[in-house]
Nucleic acid binder design. Sequence first.
DNA 1: ATCCAGTTTATAATTATTCTAAAGTGAAAA
DNA 2: TTTTCACTTTAGAATAATTATAAACTGGAT
Lengths: 135, 135
Amino acid sequence: MKKLDILKKLRSSGLRPTKQRVEIAKFLFEREKTFHFTVESLDKLLSKKTTSKFALATIYNTVHAFKAAGHLSEVEVRGNKTYFDTNVSNHHHFYDSETSELIDIDANEVVIQKIPKAPNGKKIKNVEVFINLKN
Amino acid sequence: MKKLDILKKLRSSGLRPTKQRVEIAKFLFEREKTFHFTVESLDKLLSKKTTSKFALATIYNTVHAFKAAGHLSEVEVRGNKTYFDTNVSNHHHFYDSETSELIDIDANEVVIQKIPKAPNGKKIKNVEVFINLKN
DNA sequence: ATCCAGTTTATAATTATTCTAAAGTGAAAA
DNA sequence: TTTTCACTTTAGAATAATTATAAACTGGAT
């Protein structure tokens, strides 16, 4: 994803392209493969890869703004870790608790034959499948 | 579940049946339906329902001891809430983020036709399905 | 160039959980 | 039945993750 596209992406979702947002967006979205991270890991990676520095609160703000805009999805797994995922399409996850690693599974790799209907007055928003791994 | 069974349950899993453990176990397991709770909600309920008082750390200790012994399962859902579930059989969950409510789904209500194989060197421990609800 | 709502920043506050060290207690053994 | 001691409980401190605050800053409209 090119810089121009980054600016477009931000503006089109009502996010003013500040210096910080552009730099974080470039870091997150200028890559081939999807990327999983926690706020903590992103903070460390950013301070290594860039010369600018970011307040931790800015990283929280930015990540949540990107999530609200649909540019990131949030995945919560056992162990109180909250991951964000640059893959916002409908998909599932392997979770390896040994390594705390999260691995994407394409939606079409999982076929669910039967699910119960939603309780009265509720609708199904989405279905998330976690495949927990062991050694 | 009767008091004698509670004592048996504790002893058979190597947990000394202290006053606190017995009282918490009675509260959790002497009921017909499965019960979902957070440590915080359990703490509040216990101080309402019983005359004894429990240090918060004791509730954490006890709940984790029960979990390690297989008497409770842990379910983590969006929103940084950690629920415990008196249903330790293999099953799935509806999650209603409007009300923060977790609802059990029997394992046989969900049929998965296809899942990917585990990454190299790993095995599948279990598969958890979350059906997220909306209004 | 000016202005201002939106943003960033450093820090404080909050929340959930775990740690610590001292006091208490089941239950095994004397 | 008393003694003993490893296991528990307890209150409070410590830690970790996240959110709130309020002052300073800034993109971009005018």
